[in-house]
Write a protein that binds this DNA or RNA. Structure first.
Lengths: 143, 143
DNA sequence: ATGACTGCAAAGCCTTTGCACGCAA
DNA sequence: TTGCGTGCAAAGGCTTTGCAGTCAT
């Protein structure tokens, strides 16, 4: 089992949550992925392994995880939220969205992070989070 | 009238669109703002000046303008799309979103743009657009 | 036993679509 | 006259909420 899954479950416990089946299932699915998933994808994945869970419970679990900082909510457009595990010590990354096939791919770039940090200090605005989304094509249409 | 309004109306004409009332009204509202508006805000603004327009027409006009590159669709999360005029020669900018009051403010930073350009060249991905969103607080809760 | 957790169904948003009428060209 | 443009209403997605039964503690 992924380290993050144990971490998340223990943090949930510490925050006073009970160990319900639906929430645990959501945590386990998230733990299998390094990049952002939608609520629907998580639900489908659970359904595929016959662990049927109410859609509402998926959303509730994600909301709680987000509140505890255990996942990040990523919005790459198209009106569907995505969530991904925040691994302690893990690398901060952003996303490229293929406008041809809808694929979402992660990337990271220290120089970009430095630019944003410097900028954040300069602005008259208390920056808490930042998100960079690149749109374009991953090359899926090449044969 | 804003220069962009004339530009947009003429481009719409060149693209073969007729000069309908609803679309023109949407263009005029957009032209009054330099930063991103939602479809609902545009609709409200029109309603306030007794130029009632069907909600669907607002969405249709925005879609067409986006298709011609006359506006940019900006997604700062919260599940609501925003649109802003693309002024020829205007500065490329990004957005800060106040998580306390929902305010959306523009900023620009040449260094950040350079970082993204360099990064884009390095990636195995054809970057067409990019979007940076800063979340945090604009200070509205200070008294 | 108590109250959190869950699933289901219903309701809420934002956005898109279908359709008949009206207007620009 | 032609068919694009428009408004209205209905339908579509994603997400949230209400509620009663269930389960962890």
């Amino acid at each position: 089992m992924s380290e993050w899954v144990e971490h998340a479950l223990s943090e949930l416990g510490r925050a006073g949550y009970r160990r319900g089946g639906a929430r645990t299932a959501v945590v386990e699915v998230l733990g299998r992925h390094s990049c952002a998933r939608t609520a629907l994808e998580i639900d489908d994945e659970l359904r595929a392994e016959d662990r049927r869970v109410g859609r509402a419970s998926v959303y509730r679990a994600l909301e709680q995880l987000d509140g505890l900082g255990l996942v990040t909510k990523v919005d790459v457009g198209h009106g569907t939220a995505r969530y991904e595990p925040v691994r302690p010590g893990g690398h901060h990354h952003h996303h490229m969205v293929c406008d041809d096939c809808g694929n979402v791919l992660p990337f990271e770039d220290p120089e970009l992070e430095r630019s944003i940090d410097r900028l954040s200090r300069r602005l008259d605005f208390a920056v808490a989070e930042h998100e960079v989304v690149l749109h374009g094509s991953c090359g899926c249409t090449r044969h």
